[in-house]
Nucleic acid binder design. Structure first.
Length: 117
DNA sequence: GCGGTGACTGACA
DNA sequence: CTGTCAGCCACCG
């Protein structure tokens, strides 16, 4: 088998793995590109995850549950993709503040503070 | 083969 | 909070 063939095969498997991971994100939950990459066994390759999702046309893949590491939607605010993703997230009951997904509370104080304001 | 380009990220100012 | 920067690596011309 040629080296190139082996490379293409691995590349294909990795793409599948990435898509599997994304499909396994439960509704109402989100993950960052970096997390998806790690779960797919490809630590440090967030950019590739992004590319795979961009190329992917499978409507069953919940691409909208994938956000940046800081919890924000990657697209420019107001763009068609942004609005679409926001809509899908809200439909699943994901709590958002603007373009940012509310992070899981780290401390009780922080949580209370947010609730107060 | 080489350089530019991202649906990215963590660190730092 | 915002902005910059160096890594990152598959893909494309």
């Amino acid at each position: 088998m040629r080296r190139v063939d082996a490379m293409n095969r691995d590349s294909f498997r990795q793409r599948q793995k990435i898509l599997d991971v994304v499909r396994n994100i439960p509704p109402g939950q989100t993950a960052s590109y970096g997390e998806v990459a790690r779960r797919a066994g490809l630590p440090g390759r967030a950019r590739w995850v992004a590319r795979v999702l961009a190329d992917n046309d499978d409507t069953l893949t919940p691409w909208h549950r994938v956000l940046r590491s800081d919890g924000r939607i990657v697209f420019p605010v107001g763009s068609a993709s942004f609005i679409e993703q926001l809509k899908r997230l809200q439909a699943e009951g994901v709590s958002l503040q603007g373009d940012r997904v509310r992070k899981p509370p780290k401390t009780l104080d922080q949580w209370l503070w947010e609730a107060k304001s």
